[in-house]
Structure formats: C-alpha cells, structure tokens
C-alpha cells in the first residue's frame, strides 16, 4: 500500500459506502466489513471529491480547506488509506465480482 501524500492522487475505495450523519458520515467497507467515522462534514466533502482531483492537495484546495488545517486532514486521510477506505488512483478498479 503506497503512502498517502498531498501530491498523490486518491479516491474513495469503490467498495466503501458513506452514510450522512449529524457528525459527518459513517463509512462502511463491504470487503473488510469495517466501519469508520468521518467526523466532520468538511472531511466528508474532501473524501468524496478526492477522486475528481489528480492530487490530495487539489482536492483540499478545491473544497476550500484553509492550509493551516491541511496537516489534520492529511492525518485523517492517511488513516483512512491505511485501513483501505481510500485507494490510490493509479490502482485500477476491480471488476465487480
């Protein structure tokens, strides 16, 4: 699993669903059956727009996230990538089984 950095491209894993909740969103991974809590609406916007941008930095900037908050977002995204909730863009989506 490559490391998530601001200048790499990522997207929400194709087998992950997001459910809006008052605190942000609940994420469920249909492959590993894990749950994750996205605990701010901004984080939800960033996560859902990752796939539309070639780098994480562009997604953060496009979502209007203040640069001072980027380290916090990078940590949150890194942890989502580590648990397979995000996947690198260069990785081809699997064919549905």
């Amino acid at each position: 699993m490559p490391l998530l950095s601001l200048d790499s491209g990522w997207r929400l894993h194709q087998r992950v669903s997001l459910r809006p909740e008052p605190f942000g969103a609940l994420a469920y991974h249909y492959d590993n059956r894990r749950l994750n809590f996205l605990r701010s609406p901004d984080l939800v916007r960033v996560v859902t727009s990752l796939g539309d941008h070639t780098t994480v930095a562009l997604a953060l900037s496009d979502c209007g996230i203040e640069p001072t908050r980027w380290p916090t977002f990078e940590r949150a995204l890194h942890s989502l990538a580590a648990s397979d909730f995000l996947q690198p863009q260069e990785q081809q989506p699997e064919e549905p089984a």
């Binding site: 459910r19 809006p20 909740e21 008052p22 605190f23 609940l26 605990r39």
Partner: peptide, 14 residues
C-alpha cells in the same frame, strides 16, 4: 471536537 461516544449517544440517522 466532541467525543465520538458523546455524539453516538445522541443517536444516528440509522
């Protein structure tokens, strides 16, 4: 940020 468990105690949409 509030503790996650405090938020969960308020209930979820589902």
């Amino acid at each position: 940020m509030a503790k996650l468990t405090d938020e969960l105690k308020l209930g979820l949409d589902a």
